[in-house]
Computed example of a mutant assay.
Amino acid sequence: MKKLFRFLFKIVVWFVAITMGFVVLFKWVPVPVTPLMVIRYFEQDSEQRTFWKHDWVSINEISKNMQLAVICSEDQNFLNHNGFDIKAIEKAIEYNKKGKRVRGGSTITQQTAKNVFLWPERSWLRKGLETYFTGLIELIWSKERIMEVYLNSIEMGKGVYGAEAAAQYWFKKPAAKLTQYEAAAIAAVLPSPQRYKANPASAYIQGRKAWIVKQMHFYGPFSYDKK
């Protein structure tokens, strides 16, 4: 039993050391590829398989409109919480008890942890690891860095990852020049980027886009120094 405990202890120590090392590394270094990019690549038909579109840019090269659009659509308490929005989680639980559709309560930090370090399939193991990485990210990264990684890694269309690639793909312009409505259109497809299009937008996406822009006006100017 002692040998078993020693072996398990070593595994835990190595796991913590390696994962913390990656989190520290990605505090400064761009994330070159995510597990989801690789998974989506192999999901394609082998004869028509193409690599993902992904162009890393700094947060200063991503329009404030894009940053605010995802805060308003995905996580309005992003600048105030420590990785977990308890009220949003409670609302999601209540919502899911009443209806058939599953509604998540994931914050931008949780989504970043999942996108960068984990796989998309729902399971208790993945959720546990997501919680672990979320805590590490909030401890080691700034809110601005979390947003930078999030906006450079998230899926924003079929085979399209990150704000720069999405801006070029949907609107033929750099992410720095996205307008409120263009940023809102991209944010509107995030719940299901494989299914929806930012441009031309369906009636559903048009409705979501209008709602996001309204929330952006209510939210107003923001700063990462707020926390």
Score class of each variant (00 low, 15 high):
residue 89 I to G: 01
residue 11 I to E: 13
residue 23 V to R: 02
residue 162 G to H: 06
residue 99 G to H: 05
residue 78 F to P: 01
residue 133 F to E: 03
residue 54 H to L: 01
residue 121 E to T: 09
residue 120 P to T: 08
residue 186 I to P: 06
residue 169 Y to C: 09
residue 138 E to Q: 15
residue 166 A to W: 07
residue 100 K to P: 02
residue 84 F to T: 00
residue 218 F to C: 07
residue 62 I to A: 07
residue 98 K to Y: 07
residue 164 E to V: 04
residue 78 F to Y: 13
residue 19 T to K: 05
residue 222 F to N: 10
residue 210 A to L: 11
residue 165 A to P: 05
residue 195 R to W: 12
residue 169 Y to A: 11
residue 95 Y to G: 09
residue 222 F to I: 08
residue 42 F to I: 02
residue 83 G to E: 03
residue 92 A to N: 05
residue 32 P to Y: 01
residue 192 S to W: 12
residue 50 T to G: 07
residue 119 W to E: 02
residue 63 S to Y: 02
residue 220 G to Q: 13
residue 9 F to S: 13
residue 193 P to T: 05
residue 94 E to K: 14
residue 100 K to C: 05
residue 200 P to T: 08
residue 113 A to V: 14
residue 149 V to P: 00
residue 117 F to G: 01
residue 96 N to V: 09
residue 172 K to E: 14
residue 137 I to Y: 07
residue 9 F to T: 03
residue 153 S to R: 10
residue 9 F to W: 08
residue 6 R to G: 15
residue 12 V to Q: 02
residue 196 Y to N: 13
residue 121 E to A: 10
residue 2 K to G: 06
residue 54 H to Q: 04
residue 2 K to Q: 11
residue 153 S to P: 07
residue 92 A to C: 03
residue 6 R to I: 15
residue 154 I to F: 05
residue 23 V to K: 08
residue 64 K to Q: 09
residue 196 Y to I: 04
residue 116 V to N: 08
residue 217 H to K: 15
residue 31 V to D: 02
residue 108 I to V: 02
residue 225 D to W: 05
residue 132 Y to W: 14
residue 63 S to F: 03
residue 134 T to I: 11
residue 92 A to R: 01
residue 49 R to G: 08
residue 2 K to F: 14
residue 22 F to A: 15
residue 154 I to E: 09
residue 66 M to Y: 11
residue 138 E to I: 10
residue 223 S to T: 09
residue 110 Q to T: 05
residue 145 R to K: 15
residue 223 S to P: 06
residue 128 G to C: 02
residue 62 I to D: 00
residue 179 T to I: 12
residue 38 V to G: 06
residue 92 A to H: 08
residue 84 F to R: 01
residue 179 T to N: 15
residue 160 V to H: 00
residue 179 T to F: 14
residue 21 G to C: 05
residue 214 K to G: 09
residue 94 E to C: 10
residue 108 I to W: 00
residue 83 G to C: 07
residue 144 E to L: 04
residue 77 N to L: 11
residue 22 F to E: 02
residue 142 S to G: 12
residue 200 P to V: 07
residue 134 T to Y: 05
residue 36 L to H: 13
residue 200 P to I: 10
residue 117 F to K: 01
residue 18 I to T: 12
residue 108 I to E: 03
residue 67 Q to A: 10
residue 189 V to Q: 02
residue 48 Q to M: 09
